[in-house]
Amino acid sequence: MVFLHQLFTIFMKDLRLEWRTREAMSAMLLFALLVLVIFNFAFNPDRELVLLIGPGILWVAFTFAGVLGLNRAFAAEQENGCLAGVLLTPMDRGAIYLGKWLANLLFTLVAEAILLPFFVLFFNLELTHEIPLLLLVCLLGTIGFTAVGTLLAAISANTRLREVMLPVLLFPIIVPVIVGAVESTGLILNQQTEGLAGFIRMLALYDVIFLVTSTLLFDFVLEE
């Protein structure tokens, strides 16, 4: 109970912080929107091509935007010794990690929810009954890369050039998420079900493994 309360406190703190500035949110949204627009010029896709490359474009937009948000999450903590303040409180380190992760997850999901209609609109897709499955894949994929991302953001916040360090550390490790999410999104958009369950199971497995290990390892990241 105490653990959940601590988790919730951190979560609300980040939410309040974001609500006051809306910095991360606006940066993520604008950046992801730009990715969609630029890729549209880069490929100039027709209807068939969209079904082929659309999933990739969507997940590039999601993950790049996600990295922007993750970078902000700990950059803000480093300023004025905020993290030291948080660490002075008698809080479980796992609760701090999960609270920050949930906040990052929420920001990224909100950005994705706003972005998805633009994706459908720009590329003239027609989606109806595929939507629940698509949302499930978005949720699982986003859980995966924010889970590792929150931990790695806390690590890269200690370095010079942290804006570069985070994607360099994160992208190789989330290769399975990208593969799983892009493939299942592609299958869903093409209305195929064969092999879909396998990819979704793989995403879920990745999420569980990395949430657990990240929670355990976060303790060492915060150590002075």
Binding site: V175, P176, V179, F199, M202, I209
Partner: peptide
Amino acid sequence: IVYMSIRW
């Protein structure tokens, strides 16, 4: 996990 995912 990478190996598995690429095989898939």
